[in-house]
Write a protein that binds this DNA or RNA. Structure first.
Length: 207
DNA sequence: CTCCCGATTGTCT
DNA sequence: GACAATCGGGAGG
């Protein structure tokens, strides 16, 4: 079992989601390398979670990746934007984590070409970070992070404080939808909806 | 092939 | 903080 496979299984998905904060997302393209620290993530807990795509065991060609091995990339689109998820837990257990924020480290100029916005507007949202990376299709869907040009390195930063909240865009009436399954680096500007006065512009929420 | 709609974003108040 | 735009894709016939 690879290091990533082990990381994305073996403990509850919500714990994995919080531990994902500060890890490095890295994407190798023919434009160059882009990377950044994950600042925000949400856990989706499969068949018992009414907000999850696999609620009640729903399984279709589009959400197939959730049922695959831990570390499988799950890309889907909504509102005409692309989202990046990672399957967690052993094959057959359709849980996953949605990556919602990224603090750019390498390849910022490439990102700005893909998405011409200034500062934290570049990657402070799930659709925004995908646009910045230049991922506008599902070519990487169903591929393992171990084999894709898009991968995660288990090195990076440690959050000084992890914030929690209910998940964004999830209607608040259903099984599990009230749970605080969204995790973010408190004070980091590259977190969706972070208010200006709550931003820690000096350390950006890292230790 | 049609009908439907959302794990969003940006813009305006 | 509210709301409309928008669009691809997915589910089902």
């Amino acid at each position: 079992m690879s290091e990533l496979t082990a990381f994305f299984s073996g403990e509850p998905t919500e714990l994995i989601a919080s531990e994902l904060l500060g890890k490095t997302l890295r994407y190798q393209t023919n434009q160059g390398v882009m990377s950044g620290y994950i600042t925000e993530a949400e856990a989706y807990l499969g068949q018992n979670d009414s907000a999850a795509h696999a609620f009640q065991g729903k399984r279709t060609p589009s959400n197939e990746a959730l049922y695959r091995d831990p570390g499988t990339i799950y890309i889907y689109s909504i509102h005409g934007r692309y989202m990046f998820d990672i399957a967690t837990q052993e094959a057959g257990v359709p849980q996953g984590i949605l990556v919602r924020g990224l603090e750019p480290v390498e390849g910022i100029e490439i990102m700005r070409q893909n998405r011409p916005r200034e500062g934290y507007e570049l990657t402070n949202g799930p659709g925004k970070l995908m646009q910045a990376l230049g991922i506008q299709d599902k070519a990487l869907n169903l591929i393992s992070l171990d084999e894709a040009p898009l991968t995660i390195q288990l090195t990076g930063k440690i959050p000084a404080k992890v914030g929690e909240s209910s998940r964004i865009g999830v209607s608040q009436n259903g099984n599990g939808t009230l749970l605080p399954l969204r995790y973010f680096v408190a004070g980091n500007p590259y977190v969706s909806g972070m208010r200006k006065r709550e931003m820690d512009l000096e350390n950006r929420g890292w230790k």
